Structures are given as C-alpha cells and as structure tokens.
Amino acid sequence: MNKPLVVIFTTIVLDAVGIGLIFPILPALLREVTHVENVAFSIGIMTALYAVMQFLFAPVLGSLSDRLGRRPILLISLAGAAVNYLFLAFAPSLWMLLLGRAIAGLTSANLSVATAYITDISPEDMRARRFGLFNAMFGIGFIIGPVLGGALGDYWLRLPFMAAAALNAANLLLAFLMLPESRTPTRGKIDLAALNPLRPLRWVFEVKSLLPITLIFFVFSAAGEVYGTCWALWGGDAFQWNGLWIGLSLGAFGVCQTLAQAFLPGPAVKLMGERATILTGVAGTCIALIVMAFATRSWMIFAIMPVFALGGIGAPALQSLATRQVDESQQGQFQGVIASALSLASIVCPLGFSSLYFVFRAHWPGAIWLSVVVVYVSVVPLVLGLRFKKPAAALIP
C-alpha cells in the first residue's frame, strides 16, 4: 500500500476515535456546564447545530477542494475539529460549547475530502476495495473511541475532550508533513448555484418516482439519529452506567454492526433479494429495540446486540436497490439527493428525539426505543411499494 493511502487511512482512524471519545460523557459535561439534570434537549441542540453547519458548508468545502486542492481543505477541517474539542475541554458555559460545535460542523469536510482523495489516487478497478478499507478504518476507530472516552471520562470529565483535541492535532501534523496533494487544482470559478444545499432535492419533487426511496433513506437516517442523541442518557438513567459502561456498550454495538455489514449483506441479498433483506434488517432492529425498551438488567442489552446488528444488513441492500432506480448517467445526481435527505434528517431528528426523551425520562426512559420502532414500521409500506420504473430524467440546471 502506498504512503498516501497509509496516511489517509490513519487519519480516518484517528478522526473516528476522536468522534467516538465524546459520546459516553457528553451528558455529564452538559450537566456540569448548564447545572440542569435533564440535558436531553441540550444534546439535541448541539447535534442539530453541527448538522446544520455541515449541511450548509459541505457543498462549499467540496467545491473548494476541487478548486484549491484536497490537501488544504483537509488541513483546515482537521484544524477546525481540534479547535472544537478544545472548546469542549475548557468551555465554562453552554454558548461556548455551541460555538465549538458550530466550528466543527463548518469544517466537517474531512471524511468527504478523504473520500475524494482516495478516488483521485485509486484506479477504477481498486476503488471498491479501498472504499471497503475506508469504512473498516472508520469502524475500528469508532469502536475504540467510546470505550476509551468512557474510561478517561470516569477519571476526569474533561480528559476525553483533551484527548480528542490531541488526536486531531496529531492528525493535522501527520497530514501536513506526509500527505501530498492528490490532484492539480482547477483554480476555476466556483458555480455559486451548485453550492445551494437544497438544490438536489428539487429533482425528487419533479420526478415523483424517486420520492419513495428518498423517503426511505430519510426515515432510516432519522431513526439512526436517536442513538447518538439518547444512548448515553438512557444508559445512565436506566442502568446507572458510568462512562466506561456506556463506552463498552457503544463499542460492542460497533463491533457487531461492523461484522454484520462486512459479512452478511452479500449472502442475504443473494438469498432473499434486496427488498426482503431490507425488511429483515428492519425486523431485527425492531425486535432488539423492544427488548431494550423493557430491559431491566444490563446483560440483556449486550445479549441482544447480535440481533440489533442484524439491522445493519438493510442499509447496503437499500443502497443497492437505489442504484437501480436511475440509469448510470444519473447515479451521481441521485446520490447527491440522498446525501441531502440524510443531512436534513441529521438536522431535524436530534431535536425531535431529545424532546421525546425529555418527556419519557422521568417515568420510563426505555420508551424512547418504542418511538424508534414506530418510525421503522412506518417505512415498511414504502419498501413494499417500491417499483422499478423507467429511469428519471436528469435535472436541467
């Protein structure tokens, strides 16, 4: 493997570790800063703010990476992440935490620019394998991060954020010293109309046949937002988990999910087809969520993890199904539509789920998982109703 790939994969692992570090102890940090016991809504605001900034500025940074080169944008993004974690480590008030998350969202182009970098330096016949390694590296980092963050947070609440800042600073130094530019910058004029984050969604409403599968992606992404928003809160409220146990539970989930996505989707699709595989994934997730809602012991959560991870087979099957909705000339445009739908879910749903948790917490924290079951069940008619029609006409600017 060549040196740029080693550097970019190392960057991905360190970035994922840094992201995962903060999840187990963010609720405790917010309680310390706000002096409020129920911080569910504050977590929702922080998550949604990050998503808003990412939604607005990701197209800008993507276009700048085409014009100025991948390397400078990646360096700016890593620097922004390090500044964010320093804000989290030392902020005495909520507004400073929010400012840090806004900076992180504004500069959150590292993974998308890393994807473009790999595309630049990889022959077409090697891209699938390298993108598989990309996902594996991120998965490894995200498994390590929560466990490490929980352990450090039990020692000192601010320590995980300092560790995340140090990891991103190391990431920045590594990329600065060892990562060459992957393409010749165009230095051309940026198309301002292309920077409108809502522009791709116009196509969906003009071509009605694409609306159902776009809604399915939106619902799946919406349901997925609940874990980052409510998992740590629920673990503490339902089982009195400390940071380490929250981290271990997230790490176990990550291990099972990574293994399921790595080995099961291909055989499942071959055996059942995409539609049945998606529905099987939904069923596995719903069974696990119902068990979690009624669980009274910690071991039940770890025991249900393999069934929970079965839900991971649905997303790759859905992606495969989506590629058959349009012809080859429209794939990039359709993927842009899907990315916009996922970003909107990341903005709206953390606030919704955190508000629900605020309502449920005093009487039954596990009820939040039943609300997610309702969301997943709502997607079943859409999956059953999918039809393969004549490829849609491309959007004319």
Rank of each mutant, 00 (worst) to 15 (best):
105 G>C: 11
121 I>R: 05
109 A>N: 00
95 W>A: 05
108 S>P: 04
93 S>N: 14
101 R>Q: 13
101 R>T: 10
116 A>E: 09
114 A>D: 01
112 S>N: 04
123 P>H: 15
90 F>A: 14
109 A>H: 00
123 P>W: 14
117 Y>A: 06
125 D>A: 15
119 T>W: 00
115 T>D: 00
105 G>E: 06
113 V>H: 01
117 Y>G: 05
110 N>I: 03
90 F>R: 07
91 A>C: 14
103 I>D: 05
95 W>S: 06
102 A>T: 08
124 E>Y: 13
118 I>G: 07
120 D>S: 13
120 D>M: 13
91 A>T: 12
91 A>Q: 12
90 F>M: 13
112 S>Y: 04
115 T>L: 01
96 M>D: 01
92 P>C: 08
122 S>T: 15
116 A>T: 15
122 S>L: 10
91 A>W: 13
95 W>F: 07
122 S>Y: 10
119 T>V: 03
100 G>M: 03
104 A>S: 11
112 S>Q: 07
110 N>R: 00
94 L>W: 09
122 S>C: 11
102 A>P: 03
108 S>K: 02
104 A>N: 08
126 M>C: 07
123 P>E: 15
109 A>S: 01
98 L>N: 08
108 S>T: 06
103 I>W: 02
103 I>T: 08
97 L>I: 09
105 G>S: 08
106 L>Q: 07
125 D>E: 15
115 T>E: 03
109 A>F: 00
90 F>T: 14
123 P>N: 15
104 A>W: 07
